[in-house]
Design a protein around this nucleic acid. Structure first.
Lengths: 234, 234
DNA sequence: TTTTCAAATAGTGCATACAAAATTGATTAT
DNA sequence: ATAATCAATTTTGTATGCACTATTTGAAAA
């Protein structure tokens, strides 16, 4: 009890991302709606209406829109409010081109810097993913897949790399909800994951970077393809 | 004429980044102060005081701080305002590690995608930079150097790559104002630039990527070194 | 019927006001 | 003397109000 209050500035160096402001909550809410597609591209977001529906005032909604504009999920038009930005196949290609470079760097650094127990943990998750793939458990597969990608990023030991990737991944994820991954691509992705694990096990950083770059690029191609088919019924 | 008015949403695809809001202006002002070091790391930014000194109200200042927090130039502490984030040698290394990967990708793509006249334009700027280096014109050199780096980014044809890099470069620039580049490093940098031009002239994308990665990494090492010496008088 | 223009309408952007939270300083107890 | 407690002050976070800008509507003129 006393300990909690006596420390004058205990959290000076800590990094409590517990952004508990209303604006942050509204931003999270809107972000989820955009990523899931509840707010389709082109939708104009009006502050007053949104504020009313969330039972808050205009100020935190405005601030939330500023945050989303920084993430390039919405566009702020001067004196004309905000609208949800489109997400086309071309944009997905550009996005994954950058993400591939970032994840390749992450794979290289992780392979060089990770400890043995980190690699074991990765192997464990990989095994779990293989099991989900064998049983065709799509949801569980996606979850573990995301964990593995995130783990490689984290093991790079570079916070800016993690943060930069996270921002792009948010937009990249907009496609994955729509993208129906076909079985052929799924099998190929599994193979690429297996190659990464092998490279990391052997501490072959360059091989890990190369295969991971290819893997993310291929994912981008699949997403772009799905986005293209979503608009073009062919 | 009819066409202009009959279309319900004529400016649908335009992208007028003419962000002429007060918040944006305040953000630019603060950004410059932080990058130049006028607001040193650790400085606590108080909304009311800043608003008074800029003769605006609290609202746009708050919004500007949100923008800068997204750029990781300031940290928003819940109910405790904002403070300018520190910039250490370690952070510079992490930052330039990511920027090196991004600029390497840009060099690869630019080499593959640029037109002949783009390459000529680059050569022209490179020649200008060589001249400034020969005459030891530091300011002019820096300006043209930045132009070349920006041009390579732009020639990649990937807007997300440009935007992602720009965000990091902003923080990276914090160091360059302090960093006193010694002549040895300056000469080396010039050599690296020459190698890039040669690789791009020959359309050797992989070589361009490799040398540019090295170049940016070396710049990062120089900046980190300068930051280290700034704190440690050795 | 089509075009032009003005008035009305709607909606953003900024300023101000207020409430909640944190910091500070003084006072009291140990 | 040190530590704890509580009130006063400062500062943030949210709400509200208002002016200005963009858009739409409708009537008048071509």
């Amino acid at each position: 009890m006393t300990a909690e209050r006596s420390a004058p500035v205990p959290a000076e160096d800590t990094f409590p991302i517990a952004r508990s402001s209303l604006a942050a909550s509204v931003a999270d809410h809107l972000r989820a709606m955009i990523v899931q597609g509840t707010l389709p591209p082109g939708t104009r977001v009006q502050v007053a209406a949104l504020a009313a529906s969330l039972a808050v005032s205009a100020t935190p909604v405005r601030e939330a829109l500023i945050i989303l504009a920084e993430d390039r999920l919405v566009e702020l038009l001067p004196n004309r409010g905000a609208r949800v930005l489109p997400y086309t196949a071309d944009e997905a290609l550009a996005l994954f081109e950058v993400m591939a470079a970032l994840e390749a760097l992450a794979a290289r650094l992780a392979t060089m810097r990770m400890h043995a127990e980190d690699c074991d943990e990765l192997e464990r998750r990989h095994a779990a993913m293989v099991a989900h793939h064998r049983r065709r458990e799509r949801q569980a597969y996606f979850a573990v897949n995301n964990e593995i990608h995130a783990a490689v990023l984290t093991l790079s030991g570079n916070p800016d790399l993690v943060a930069t990737h996270a921002r792009l991944e948010l937009r990249g994820r907009r496609g994955r909800y729509n993208a129906i991954v076909d079985d052929a691509r799924w099998d190929q992705a599994m193979h690429e994951h297996a190659l990464l694990m092998e490279a990391m096990r052997c501490r072959d950083a360059e091989a890990a970077a190369s295969i991971w770059q290819t893997h993310v690029t291929n994912t981008g191609l699949a997403v772009a393809h799905a986005l293209h088919r979503a608009l073009d019924p062919a």
